[in-house]
C-alpha cells in the first residue's frame, strides 16, 4: 500500500513537473526549482493533499517535526534516502 502511494506521489510529481524545469536531485536533495503555471498547480495540489492529511490527522513525526504524511513522503523523496536511483527522481526526465 505504502509502495503504491509512493509511486502515485512520484507519478503526480513527474507529470505535473514535466517540462516545467522542476528538478529534484538525489545528490543535492534541497535544490528544488520550479517555475511556470504547471509548477504552481503542482504546489497547490500538494498543499491540498497535505491539508487533507492534516484534517484527517494523518500526521507523523520526522526529525521531531509534526508533518502530514504527504509532507513526510515528499521529504523522503527530496532526500533521496529511499534507495531510488537519481534517474527515477529526476522529474524533468519525462
Amino acid at each position: 500500500m505504502a509502495m503504491k502511494r509512493r509511486t502515485a506521489l512520484l507519478g503526480a510529481l513527474a507529470l505535473a513537473g514535466a517540462g516545467t524545469g522542476l528538478l529534484v536531485s538525489r545528490w543535492n536533495p534541497f535544490s528544488v526549482f520550479g517555475t511556470g503555471e504547471r509548477c504552481s498547480f503542482l504546489k497547490l495540489a500538494w498543499r491540498a493533499r497535505s491539508t487533507a492529511d492534516y484534517q484527517a490527522r494523518r500526521t507523523t513525526l520526522v526529525d521531531g517535526w509534526v508533518l502530514s504524511e504527504s509532507e513526510a513522503e515528499l521529504l523522503t523523496l527530496l532526500r533521496g534516502g529511499d534507495g531510488e536511483s537519481t534517474q527515477e527522481c529526476r522529474l524533468d526526465s519525462h
Partner: peptide, 10 residues
C-alpha cells in the same frame, strides 16, 4: 534543511 526544502516545494 528538511523544512526549508519542503517550503521550497510547497
Amino acid at each position: 534543511d528538511g523544512i526549508r526544502a519542503l517550503d521550497r516545494v510547497l
